[in-house]
Design a protein around this nucleic acid. Sequence first.
DNA 1: GAGTGGTCTAGACCACGAC
DNA 2: TCGTGGTCTAGACCACTCC
Lengths: 268, 268
Amino acid sequence: MACLCEALYTASMTEADAFLPNSRDAGAVVNGGSEPRYREIKRSIVASIRSGRLKPGDRVNSEAEIVERFGVSRMTANRALRELTDAGLLMRRSGAGTFVADSKPIGHMIEIRNIADEIRARGHAYRPRVLRNDTVKADARQAALLDVRVGTRLFHSVVVHHEADFPLQLEDRLVLASAAPGYGEIDFHQQTPNEYLTRIAPIARAEHRVTSMLPDPEVRALLGMRELDPVLVMERRTWSSDHLVSHAVLTHPASRYALTATFEVKLD
Amino acid sequence: MACLCEALYTASMTEADAFLPNSRDAGAVVNGGSEPRYREIKRSIVASIRSGRLKPGDRVNSEAEIVERFGVSRMTANRALRELTDAGLLMRRSGAGTFVADSKPIGHMIEIRNIADEIRARGHAYRPRVLRNDTVKADARQAALLDVRVGTRLFHSVVVHHEADFPLQLEDRLVLASAAPGYGEIDFHQQTPNEYLTRIAPIARAEHRVTSMLPDPEVRALLGMRELDPVLVMERRTWSSDHLVSHAVLTHPASRYALTATFEVKLD
DNA sequence: GAGTGGTCTAGACCACGAC
DNA sequence: TCGTGGTCTAGACCACTCC
């Protein structure tokens, strides 16, 4: 069916700002089964970024400020900020401060770029051709793909992403309606399905399967391909929190598209 | 032209045990431009694993032991062990101890499996067909791929990996001779090229490019493919420490092989 | 009960950046 | 100069595991 590759944003961690007022005997040790302080601080920062209150480039509370606001020691504040920095969510400059990092694509993992951005970065016009965006009740096959019961309400969108006038990717996507209620209303000219989803339901886990084949005539026509040109097909399932949110089949003409992935291992 | 996908092992960090005797005024703070203590400890542990002195499942020094041996505070020992654990190199069980983790394939990132293991896991016989394994002097094209000067000594191996009697992957690999001097002597029946390389020159960085095409007749024959079946081609460049070590083109029949990648994001 | 990791504190010195 | 992060210490309490 269809293929497309957009940005997967970092960040996980559920819940909103909910860093409870903290009825904990702050001073001493104690941590009676509750969440560690550093993690609580991380949650609150992640939530601030999620909610849009903190945007890339914005300054985050300094360690000293966190010490005061949360009533923790500097080591604890440091750990929270350091771990978020290691995770790529923040950037720190000694002497200057801590800042929200540019919303990195999936960091070191697979660098799957936002197709729209990618196209624009090449100086071309991005144009989506929306073939459908409906509400459906899951049939057996769809239910299996999203691991839900038959009849569950889903969105089903099919979009062809064009670079200038050339179709580059065919995206066929199923979305769990309960996880992204507004999906049916999106104007794909304003944001790609994945852009929307990563904002609404931040990706916690993604599973990919890449293969290739000769496309059937219909797909070949949609992608404006010559005969005997294979397509590169990427199937992607994404989870948010703990449930499957979306299944996408992203199909591209192999002659015009290659997937790239790069990663580093650093232990220092 | 060849393709194969093996395990990429974790771990980075250069140098051997070299944790200098540490002429640092231990007691106080000070860190006059030298390496932080926690990183030094990490290096030493990584080196122990690298050298084979510590194997998966082995117990690592406890925090208390590190405190004594390195003359650091427990927080520092804890940081070293915790970071290596987060990186997937170690496993900790509260109350029990710290252990070397099973040599994880690239962890959460791309799970690219060792083709030999993968085949055996499916209960089939793995059989390599070695077409060549020569020493060559880099020509212009090869020099560009490995980012070295023309004439640099390289190994060039071509192997077809079979599952039972079916060719599954064609691997065409260039290896920088100076980085893996023994490569030319490997018996690929004993270990795959990548197995050897990950042991000799642990991967610090990898770059992938995946595409597909219709194979030329020669490749098609080597892979025992029918006409009009596309191949899935993965090109991979791997770095160790700071230099490019290997370039591989891994080609598989799309009808018999799919790449999978899965990753999780966790910020807690 | 002894040992282990998990967390936390209240100090500290340092290099760096902004003013 | 003052605030920032980067590192480090020498204690501490806790829950857990293993014996």
